[in-house]
């Protein structure tokens, strides 16, 4: 398992549209992704779980990739979160 911490800078936080795009991307991956904010840890392929994290602007999230191309999957998710701008 590989993990990395990233800070969400999107002004509106992780709202429905980018969350939907991220979940759709994670679902296409060959491994699993877990997202952890504080004490709460969820499956990155579940839209409802991801939304329930309530990630607002400035939230630090730990992305963990397990199975498949761990390094590649981790990088894609981290980049995605880093690049949300709306």
């Amino acid at each position: 398992m590989l993990s990395e911490k990233v800070i969400l800078t999107a002004p509106n936080g992780l709202h429905a549209r980018p969350a939907g795009e991220m979940v759709a991307m994670i679902k296409t991956m060959d491994g699993k992704i877990r997202l952890t904010v504080g004490a709460k840890s969820v499956n990155g392929a579940s839209m409802l779980s991801v939304l329930s994290l309530g990630m607002k602007s400035g939230t630090e999230v730990e992305v963990a990739a397990e199975g498949g191309d761990e390094a590649g999957n981790l990088r894609r998710v981290v980049e995605f979160i880093r690049n949300i701008s709306e």
């Binding site: 429905a16 549209r17 969350a19 939907g20 795009e21 979940v23 759709a24 579940s46 839209m47 409802l48 779980s49 939304l51």
Partner: peptide, 11 residues
Amino acid sequence: AAHVEIARDDM
């Protein structure tokens, strides 16, 4: 598109 993901959620 985001609503589709909600509807498809296993939870």
